[in-house]
Design a binder for these strands. Structure first.
Lengths: 156, 156
DNA sequence: CCGCGTTGCTTGACGCTTCAAGTGATGGCC
DNA sequence: GGCCATCACTTGAAGCGTCAAGCAACGCGG
């Protein structure tokens, strides 16, 4: 499109800076809320939420890691912490000993139910309520297009 | 607007999940590129870039922290690292001893010039080229609106 | 069946960010 | 002029994420 691929036009730069600001601040804001109200990381929340929506409240590690947009290593650490808090259990799959299946415990589910409303309210306040439904739809399209570039495999 | 403030509609949820995925993956992708090609954090890059665009390649700490969307503490640590690498210098302001002014050295400027093309190319590839100019404009508006909610003070 | 490469996950070390406490410099108040 | 609250920044400790190895379990070729 535009001239020199080496630099950004003023419009491009401004848009990028806005997005960069968003990427810096929004995660922090959401993490703060979850941390203060529930002692959970955003990623930990996603893991619990992912399990709660799965069949048998269980899911294999790789699958869960992909769903939550995190590395397997990260998930392993996080699940270990959640396990020590009694929110999750791990055990090898019956048909393949290499696979580990994580399961949400009753305590974990109960805990998630106490954490969810506050988190949802924060998402609503920061994101949903800031935009018109039309903008929200635009945002989704835009985010998906960028995601497809960043992580081609995960385009589903 | 819609019904129960306690939960999200399917459309809202989908949009949110797309945005969440973006927030998780894009920073990591950009950090990776900068780290591998230049040994810089995205935040470190922003700090150097912010200084390079300032008058006299200098800026006071608080100002720089706000510009780069980071905490003062974070900036202090980062500037210390950059200083030990010889890219930045610090000294107290003449008229107010509390204020610290950071200055980009020639070495820092030269280093930034080697790092910039790769980073800009990554931003272009992941974000700019993924969108139409119209979408880019929408993204800017949307990001600014959300930012205004997350960080009311910073709305300039 | 027996290696041997592959898959799936775990672990440890290191680095960066955050949080809370600490250090000076400044300006207002008496 | 001296005291105290405040401002601007720095520091240290604790926690989380990433990277690079490591460790079993599986399954294919012979």
């Amino acid at each position: 499109m535009a001239a020199d691929p080496k630099w950004l036009s003023p419009d491009e730069l401004a848009a990028w800076l806005s997005l960069a600001g968003l990427m810096f601040k929004l995660p922090g804001a959401l993490d703060s809320q979850l941390q203060r109200d529930s002692g959970l990381t955003h990623f930990e929340y996603l893991v619990l939420a992912g399990l709660s929506e799965s069949e048998g409240r269980s899911r294999r590690m790789s699958d869960l890691a992909g769903w939550a947009n995190g590395s397997l290593s990260r998930l392993s650490h996080v699940v270990k912490r959640l396990e020590s808090r009694g929110f999750v259990e791990r055990r090898p799959a019956e048909d393949d000993g290499r696979i580990t299946v994580a399961t949400l415990t009753d305590a974990g589910f109960a805990f998630l139910e106490t954490a969810a409303p506050g988190h949802v309210a924060a998402v609503r306040e920061y994101v949903i309520d800031a935009l018109t439904p039309e903008q929200l739809a635009q945002l989704r399209v835009v985010a998906d297009q960028i995601l497809a570039r960043v992580d081609p495999d995960k385009s589903c």
